[in-house]
Simulated assay, not measured.
Amino acid sequence: MKQENKNVKTFSQHLDERYGKIGNPARTEFEIKAKSFAIGELIKEERKLAKLTQQQLAEKIGAKKSFISRIENGRSDIQLSTLYKLIELGLGRKVNLTIL
């Protein structure tokens, strides 16, 4: 017989309780910050694969090291043109956006 623990919640349930349902302003803000963090992690991973320091990547795109650090730590909103510069010019990779 399967025993259920009523205290265990799904991640979605946790987010609903903490930030409200999808569409709630607090939930939207959380989702935006989570996406910024994920983009920063992706850039950091690709930078390391390219064997570049933050300083070297910054120099390749004409930015400051602190800007690269803020992006990698999810603390900076970036424009699509900046994302393009980072990925394509700085890291030599291609940007492919998919909207689902």
Rank of each mutant, 00 (worst) to 15 (best):
K2I: 10
N5K: 08
K6H: 06
N7Y: 00
N7S: 04
V8R: 15
K9G: 10
T10D: 08
T10R: 12
F11Y: 03
F11P: 09
F11C: 01
S12L: 03
S12A: 10
L15C: 05
D16A: 07
R18K: 10
Y19W: 08
Y19A: 04
Y19I: 11
G20S: 11
G20L: 02
G20C: 07
G20D: 04
G20A: 05
G20K: 06
K21E: 12
K21Q: 12
I22W: 00
I22P: 01
I22M: 01
N24H: 15
N24E: 10
A26S: 02
A26Q: 05
A26M: 11
R27Y: 12
T28L: 09
E29L: 12
E31R: 15
I32V: 09
I32N: 11
K33V: 09
K33Q: 14
A34I: 12
K35E: 15
K35L: 13
K35M: 15
S36G: 15
S36N: 15
A38D: 14
E41M: 13
L42T: 11
L42C: 07
L42A: 04
I43F: 04
K44S: 14
E46D: 06
R47P: 00
R47L: 03
A50F: 02
A50G: 01
K51F: 13
K51D: 08
K51H: 08
K51C: 07
L52E: 01
T53E: 01
T53F: 00
T53K: 04
Q54K: 12
Q54H: 07
Q54D: 05
Q55C: 09
Q55W: 07
Q55P: 10
Q56D: 11
Q56Y: 11
Q56V: 11
Q56C: 10
L57T: 01
A58Y: 02
I61G: 01
K65E: 07
K65W: 10
S66W: 06
S66T: 15
F67C: 07
I68P: 03
I68G: 02
S69R: 05
S69Y: 07
S69H: 10
R70Y: 03
I71S: 01
E72T: 11
E72P: 05
E72H: 01
E72Q: 03
N73L: 14
G74T: 03
G74A: 12
R75D: 12
S76P: 01
I78F: 00
Q79W: 02
Q79P: 07
Q79L: 12
L80R: 02
S81T: 14
L83F: 15
Y84C: 07
K85Q: 13
I87F: 00
I87M: 04
E88C: 03
L89R: 14
L89Y: 09
G92H: 09
G92P: 02
G92K: 04
V95L: 03
V95E: 00
N96V: 09
L97K: 04
T98L: 15
L100E: 15
